[in-house]
Nucleic acid binder design. Structure first.
Lengths: 250, 250
DNA sequence: CATTTTTCAATCAAAAACAATCATAAATAA
DNA sequence: TTATTTATGATTGTTTTTGATTGAAAAATG
């Protein structure tokens, strides 16, 4: 049997079974153990598989791929600092809700090694959460195709069964009159309910969100503490009586 | 045999078999090894094929560019056929539950363009489901880190709010006495409840699952219809009165 | 934890496949 | 026709691949 054919067969078997023994491959290709070993070495060098004692296994792109996940979130040092600040607020034993969103996603690395329970409506957060071995509950509901967030009455009912020490929300607009707002009414409803189930609510928002308003109201300004990266003096003055703002200094 | 005819034959054989040995070509064209070598060198220069030690291979060795998502699942033609059969059972307007598992995952492409509603406990299914624009509800619950499936009381409560026309389950063991079984009690509970919420239940299981039993019982044999790829005569005889088996013929 | 078994990498000789060369046979041109 | 080119097949020495063997390393076992 020719080399490329053997290689193809090896990869194929791996695809079916996740792991294969050398013996299986010897039989499948009717070649010697030595040859298979050489094949495996070569395929490993080509990153097609991973050799393990006794055979080979599919390489599950884990840590490598995960860094991609982290990176895929819009990368900005401002959001990173906000996320870190928020993450550091979480203490041992907390039950927290983490909303869908890029900034909230970036909190997760800062939760590492804390013994906490996380509830979320963000499917996209799960890879990181499980990677860091954080006990995670997902609420149920309709999967919103674009953002992969859970919404709808199912989500609300599911969410209602939990209580939180802290809730961390992303938000699109922070406005003196309109309060906290976000474009999608369905998501707004979920955020609203989360707030009502928590002792404390934190809104993670960079400075571009101030004095903006979108379609659906989530809450009044005084219902949450805002974590942001900077705020100009005028805005600081305007908002100071209405809400509580923590500015993350670099 | 004339040169162009030989070349045509070589390309033809390659198209059929992905790889050919020089010996095969020598026989097929009844020309000498030297000639074939020259042919291969030339065809390689013309980018018609790739020479390999012992023969030649197709340039685009069909490494099957499945969407990355599909690729990650265990690949086997048997499971594929089972999945297709199951997928074809779903009709317009159905509300179905799709269990976590590799075979059930492979059903999804066969649901394309059907106007249906899917409920699942499998986070890993969501990428494909949303890709095919299928209306999808996820049940809530604890995220089981290893399999990324949703389990626990939250999952059960969430699941209980739905009713299904058809339920499709993966299962680990099908046994005359033990019934349908699976290793994890938490997952078993979810499957159990799903069955009770549905008009019809289908179990997707290849032939290796017969006469196996795992830790947790999911249901009696008569509670579901089994879709499998093959079954030996003894097993067919044993099971025939106890349950309904559909064998997918290739 | 010592012993046994399995698996591994390294080595080597045999086999297979290779490129290069050459002489012959066929095709083409003079 | 003869000369010349071209394709072919056989031959040669070289390179690559292969499978068996070995002692070392790693798992499994008691």
């Amino acid at each position: 049997m020719l080399t490329p054919e053997r290689h193809r067969k090896i990869i194929e078997q791996l695809g079916e079974k996740q792991v294969v023994t050398i013996q299986e491959l010897v039989e499948a290709t009717s070649s010697s153990e030595s040859t298979i070993r050489r094949d495996l070495s070569q395929l490993q060098k080509e990153k097609k598989l991973k050799r393990v004692h006794g055979g080979a296994s599919l390489l599950h792109q884990k840590s490598e791929e995960l860094s991609v996940i982290e990176k895929s979130a819009k990368n900005s040092p401002e959001k990173e600092r906000i996320a870190q600040f928020a993450g550091d607020l979480v203490v041992e034993g907390d039950c927290i809700y983490i909303d869908a969103g890029t900034t909230t996603l970036k909190m997760i690395p800062y939760l590492k090694d804390k013994d906490i329970t996380v509830v979320t409506n963000a499917i996209s957060h799960l890879d990181l959460l499980t990677e860091y071995e954080i006990k995670t509950y997902l609420i149920g509901g309709l999967v919103k195709p674009k953002t992969k967030a859970l919404v709808g009455s199912g989500a609300l009912n599911s969410l209602r069964t939990y209580r939180f020490d802290k809730v961390f929300l992303g938000i699109n607009g922070i406005h003196l009159d309109a309060g906290f707002t976000t474009p999608d009414p369905e998501e707004a409803a979920v955020k609203q309910l989360a707030i009502s189930l928590s002792q404390k609510t934190f809104v993670l928002a960079d400075h571009t969100k101030f004095n903006e308003a979108s379609f659906s109201k989530v809450a009044e300004l005084n219902e949450a503490i805002i974590i942001t990266n900077e705020i100009d003096e005028d805005a600081a003055y305007d908002f100071q009586d209405k809400t509580d703002i923590r500015v993350v200094t670099p």
